[in-house]
Nucleic acid binder design. Structure first.
Lengths: 226, 226
DNA sequence: TTTGACATTTTGGGGCGTCAAAAGTTAGGT
DNA sequence: ACCTAACTTTTGACGCCCCAAAATGTCAAA
């Protein structure tokens, strides 16, 4: 288990992890877009990772993470989020800049520095966006579906304004959709229609597009089908 | 003026800067040693830099920095020392670890993060070793000769225990050779012999080897030859 | 002045990551 | 069934950085 992943390898793993959320497999085109490289480059990256058994690649069909690959991806995400936290908490960057900048120097950070940084930051549990920082040796992360994945009757707590577009975040704020706020889905119109929900006692309607920018934690409602 | 220096380029510039302190030119062999690469690799690096007019290279004779190269080297040193300071002040690393670790991730640090880090650290003036952090656009640094460069009669202030070996630092400490302490050279024995000096009223004798590990600031003694 | 020890540069090769463009595959429409 | 548009993979090339080893240059001792 050679553990020397290059910058590209780690970025590719992160992208595959994100792209395979709720989907069968990530296609190389999407991967190339996510990484900002040409399709050929994405294919080459995938082949490198397949060689090391970090992904499984079915030609022309797509790619999925192996358990080892998933572990590596989560480590990479953990590092990314710790560095984001550093940029936000210690250097005062707003969270969208933190995201952008973290990617550029997280790669060569020695593991021991990451560990110390984590402690110095007081063991944060989320990145500045509000996404969880996974434990070092955990093989999956708490699920945070977009609000639009919920159905009528579901109750959840807003975890994060996940958008990278400041205007959207501001808009969400005016609706009261801030981290920690509980929402209940009243209605979900068909054919990708808008969502009607209750936020702090008030009824709100938001579009599918916006609802996909909000990530939530499902409130535990052991809803027994009885 | 393409400003895209690679990791190797910057490390090479730093090494050339240090190696040309008080010498005509740095030879490739010394450079290779300093960088931990083979001689051929050092030659190649020098050729790359010469191509960009950052160094001047006289074949088989050695290499010197151009003004632009000196500027770039100082920027690299500035960054290194700021990162060291970060590791020491924010993460609690001892200074010898800070030195070791800084080199591994300083390269991809975006300039703007370096700038913010500098401010967040409260604009430090020295690295944890005590060496000065040069101003961003300065083309040389205050000189800090090793103690052994002084002659009998010279007076100086200890600026830094420059060694990377903890035992030596501890030894210096027992002699009272701490940063800020004033020393006067009483005698310098010939043929690389030991140095006799006064430290805080007491007379001390230290070997050439040790005296080369201590860096000092010369006390200004406009010694007119009259 | 010659020669040999030593240092430097060149050559040839390899790994990685990237691109542009050619070749191959899939799937949908007719 | 076929054809074609869209996508994926392969190919060939380049830049970077490194090494080992061969070729070249320097300098001083004999």
């Amino acid at each position: 288990m050679e553990n020397n992943l290059s910058k590209s390898d780690r970025d590719t793993l992160k992208a595959v992890y994100r792209l395979t959320k709720g989907v069968d497999a990530a296609h190389t085109g999407a991967l190339a877009d996510a990484l900002g490289v040409t399709p050929g480059t994405a294919t080459a990256a995938v082949k490198r990772l397949a060689e090391r058994d970090l992904v499984e690649h079915e030609r022309y069909r797509g790619v999925v993470l192996t358990p080892a690959g998933r572990q590596a991806a989560i480590s990479a995400i953990r590092r990314h989020r710790i560095v984001e936290r550093f940029l936000a908490d210690m250097l005062g960057y707003p969270w969208n800049d933190a995201d952008r900048l973290a990617g550029s120097f997280e790669h060569d950070l020695p593991q021991e520095v990451e560990d110390r940084l984590f402690v110095a930051l007081d063991r944060p549990t989320t990145c500045p966006h509000g996404f969880p920082i996974p434990e070092p040796d955990v093989s999956d992360m708490p699920e945070m579906p977009p609000l639009y994945a919920l159905e009528a009757g579901d109750v959840a707590v807003v975890a994060v304004p996940g958008s990278t577009e400041p205007e959207i975040v501001e808009f969400l704020d005016t609706l009261g959709l801030r981290p920690g706020v509980e929402v209940e889905v009243k209605e979900k119109h068909p054919f990708d229609g808008p969502l009607v929900l209750t936020v702090a006692g008030k009824e709100r309607t938001i579009s599918q597009k916006v609802a996909n920018h909000i990530f939530v934690t499902r409130s535990d409602q052991q809803e027994r089908t009885a």
